[in-house]
Design a protein around this nucleic acid. Sequence first.
RNA 1: GCGAUCAUGGCGAAGUGGUUAACGCACCGGAUUGUGGUUCCGGCACGCGUGGGUUCGAUCCCCACUGGUCGCCCCA
Length: 423
Amino acid sequence: MKAPRGTQDLLPGVTEKWQFVEEKLMEISRNYNYKEIRTPIFEHTELFQRGVGDTTDIVQKEMYTFVDKGDRSLTLRPEGTASVVRSFVEHKLFGSPTQPTKLFYIGPMFRYERPQQGRMRQFVQFGVEALGSADPAIDAEVIGLAMEAYQSLGLKSLKLVINSLGDQTSRESHRQALVDHFSPYKDELCVDCQSRLTKNPLRILDCKKDRDHPAMNTAPSILEYLNEESEKYFIQVQKYLESMNIPYTVDKNLVRGLDYYNHTAFEIMSDAEGFGAITTLSGGGRYNGLVQDLGGPETPGIGFAMSIERLLMALEKENIQLPIKENLDCFVIAMGEEENLLAVKMIKKLREQGIQVDKDYQMKKMKAQFKVADRLNSKFVLVIGETELENNQITIKNMNTGDQVTIDTEQTVDYIKQAIQGE
RNA sequence: GCGAUCAUGGCGAAGUGGUUAACGCACCGGAUUGUGGUUCCGGCACGCGUGGGUUCGAUCCCCACUGGUCGCCCCA
């Protein structure tokens, strides 16, 4: 048996990295005053159809959808925002006296795709949503949080790209302009773009196939169609970013794949060597109509999501070592039955003091047990043999220096405690 | 969904249509009695992704399936 395609087991040796990264992300979230929310891993299919959008690739071809025994159509969540907003509406979090509602989540997402490096069918996203504020400063806060998350782990090769998709009015006039612009060339565009022309002309700008088509360069930019309010908003966001000293570039062709975005859209990419085709580390944006679409009151919102897999990939590409403790405080070696009884008692006492202790359970000989202690990178080895038992003593060997002392059993815990603290 | 490529022990990796499937790492045991990281000696795949087929005979040939990797699409 193998794990299903596009899924992976995280084994000891890498789970430590995940724990470290996840703890870091939670710590940063706390500093920014975002609270954790945990929503179900599956939702009614309709939530994503309405929330993410029927025309998106995610809904059209990437959802893990199934019918349960009660004939309900359910879907393994392909992203986090729709669920968070659903929960926000369902529990009327908009009624809370403290607004905006600042939430973060971390958990598995599912998309049916061809797997490759940095793209799994089950993957983990950390994301943040700020609901209830239309202040451009919060756009900058959310972007800043994402950037800080990467930087705090030591990443350097980062590229922040932002754009504005404008508000509803701006988008509509731009949409019309795009249709007018591309229609004469319809037959020259790829099949996908031909259908995008009617469904979602904005996405044509994103097309890799038609990238070199002459009409591409002259296509109307959304930035030219931003109404006064949208443009002002976008400029404000940039001012805040500059004030926070966060470098960015504006890419007028940045179009996000989900329907709910408007105004601010952004992506963070990695410049690191050898990253392959997939370089987007995280993406997000503003979604002012979404809460209402999902049955809530008119509420602005902004958020982003990042893939932990890709974050870890980026760390590897930049050769960043996470400070993970890879040793054991103490390994206890006991020789006979009586000795083992004493060993077990000592181990319990040591562990109660928060000391990390292990012993052999394979009936190995002393020599082999020392090898194990060495492999576990144990700082100390306690030897309880015949002689020690007789004298009510324990031999303690410092594995780094090779020094060895024999002391009374009663003093052992204190001795180890001090030795470890004194490091 | 499309294209390319690959699939040998815990890991890395050679190899051939036919008696014992290299090698390296790891692991296990030993080099005199209770002490590690070095060295030396020895051990370690009735098995070559799964299922069919061709053949006197296949790990090496053919087909299907499954999975990995890379690219396209798209994204996180």
